[in-house]
């Protein structure tokens, strides 16, 4: 199968969906003529023109609001917020408007909106350009939250997100754009709300989101060298969460490590831990281990930033500990 970068896979998804459906339009800063700061919208402006591919002013509240209104009236906008940190400027539009419209209006409204954005740390972008805010949106009923970790998942899930009739927060990771992986030439979709077992194993389950899934796979390699077979699950969709996939795996392995880049407190790892202990308590052979970011704003200094973000080493250590093995 051909190899594509995460960046190109996303770009291809946008090209295909814009060709397929004239209601799909793009809004964001530098997404048109320049092709996107991250080049995800490259070539769309030339092909589809200014009406459907809008370069906006630096006005996040404004253009996200416009995307919500456009979605309620028949379009399928894909708005790009350059860094998830800037989504805070559009919070009312996302949380109070997009997420609420359907329920609050008694099921009459449809908001087929995708907000593509990018999060995560590791590049020394410091506190206002490195956050992992996925759980803010997971916490909001009425939103779907997706975080793909591979080019294949990125393309298939972005296409499904665009076709979905709900507001979707689609969160890419800044350190994944240049990663590559197999992506078929033929069109395909990946269903929202379905986790993927990235590696099978029988001794311990590692659930990891976004870039952490790649780190978990590296950890699994190291664990294999120590005779421990880890099963790595990437939920891909954080909400709705494919809990049954995780439960099935835990029923097989009896041990669980949950990994998420965002700060630990009130985070994804706590959520998964709570649900798994309730549904699979009898299968657990060890307390569930959480591996998450430090409860601090992300620092600029490289050494400090590394310490604030989970590393492969942390995942290996957590897996060893639930297996009651020495590090």
């Amino acid at each position: 199968m051909r190899e594509l970068s995460y960046r190109d896979a996303l770009n291809e998804a946008l090209h295909e969906e814009m060709a397929r459906d004239p209601c799909v339009c793009i809004l964001g800063e530098d997404v048109g003529r320049y092709g996107g700061v991250l080049q995800i919208t490259r070539g769309l402006y030339e092909k589809y023109g200014e009406k459907r591919v809008r370069d906006t002013p630096i006005s996040e509240a404004g253009f996200v609001g416009i995307a919500v209104g456009a979605a309620m009236t028949g379009l399928r906008p894909v708005a790009e917020i350059m860094y998830i940190d800037f989504s805070t400027l559009a919070m009312d539009q996302i949380v109070n408007q997009a997420a609420k419209a359907r329920y609050m209006f008694g099921g009459k409204a449809r908001v087929p909106l995708v907000i593509r954005t990018q999060g995560g740390g590791g590049r020394g972008n410091a506190a206002q350009h490195s956050q992992s805010l996925e759980m803010w949106y997971v916490h909001t009923p009425g939103l779907i939250v997706i975080q793909p970790s591979t080019p294949y998942d990125a393309k298939g899930l972005l296409k499904s997100a665009i076709r979905n009739d709900n507001p979707v927060i689609f969160i890419e990771h800044k350190l994944l754009y240049n990663t590559t992986g197999p992506v078929p030439e033929e069109p395909y979709l990946i269903p929202i709300g379905v986790a993927d077992v990235k590696r099978e194993g029988s001794d311990v389950t590692i659930v990891a989101t976004s870039r952490m899934a790649l780190l978990a796979l590296e950890a699994a390699e190291q664990l294999a060298a120590k005779g421990i077979q880890a099963e790595v699950i990437d939920p891909r969709t954080l909400k709705p969460l494919d809990l049954s996939c995780i439960i099935q795996s835990v029923q097989k392995t009896g041990r669980l490590v949950v990994v998420n880049e965002a700060p630990l407190t009130g985070g994804f790892t706590a959520e998964v831990t709570a649900r798994v202990q309730r549904q699979a308590f009898d299968w657990l052979d060890a307390p569930i281990m959480q591996v998450a970011g430090a409860d601090v704003p992300l620092p600029y200094n490289g050494r400090l930033e590394m310490a604030a973000i989970p590393q492969v080493r942390d995942i290996v250590d957590a897996a060893l500990s639930v297996c009651y093995r020495e590090a």
Binding site: A126, A127, P299, Y300, N301, L304
Partner: peptide, 10 residues
Amino acid sequence: YCKGKGGSMH
């Protein structure tokens, strides 16, 4: 100025 936590932008 920021003890290394802010960098150029802060």
